[in-house]
């Protein structure tokens, strides 16, 4: 819950609500980019990597840093946990 996981922003889904699609270890998830958006258009974020905490992109990182962080998270078992929590979130929305 506290570590966050790197994801790559692949599309902007809702400009007004500052929402984007991120790809996290092969899984797609809609996330908020409110914390990493500066003045420019949101489309500038596409292709960038970010540390994603509980559905919010909190900090932009470079690809190398993303790779290292993911590896450490896999090692700690935290990457799997984050992906399971995303799946649980989807299940909750489906009514479970």
């Amino acid at each position: 819950m506290c570590l966050g996981i790197p994801g790559q922003i692949v599309a902007i889904t809702d400009e007004s609500r500052q929402m984007a699609m991120a790809e996290v270890s092969g899984v797609r998830r809609e996330v908020s980019v409110a914390c990493v958006a500066d003045e420019g258009p949101l489309s500038g974020l596409i292709g960038q990597w970010a540390l994603i905490h509980v559905g919010f992109a909190m900090s932009l990182i470079d690809e190398d840093e993303a790779a290292k962080t993911l590896e450490a998270l896999h090692d700690l078992g935290e990457a799997q946990e984050a992906l399971e929590q995303m799946a649980a979130g989807d299940a909750a929305l489906a009514g479970e």
């Binding site: 819950m1 996330v31 649980a88 979130g89």
Partner: peptide, 29 residues
């Protein structure tokens, strides 16, 4: 169990007749 408070928000939108409560837990992260 949700991944994000945004999931809870979406549940509230989809279930207007229900009261959706999110357990806000954690440090500054």
């Amino acid at each position: 169990m949700v991944y994000s408070p945004l999931d809870a928000l979406e549940l509230a939108r989809r279930n207007p007749e229900r009261e959706v409560v999110f357990f806000g837990l954690g440090f500054e992260t």
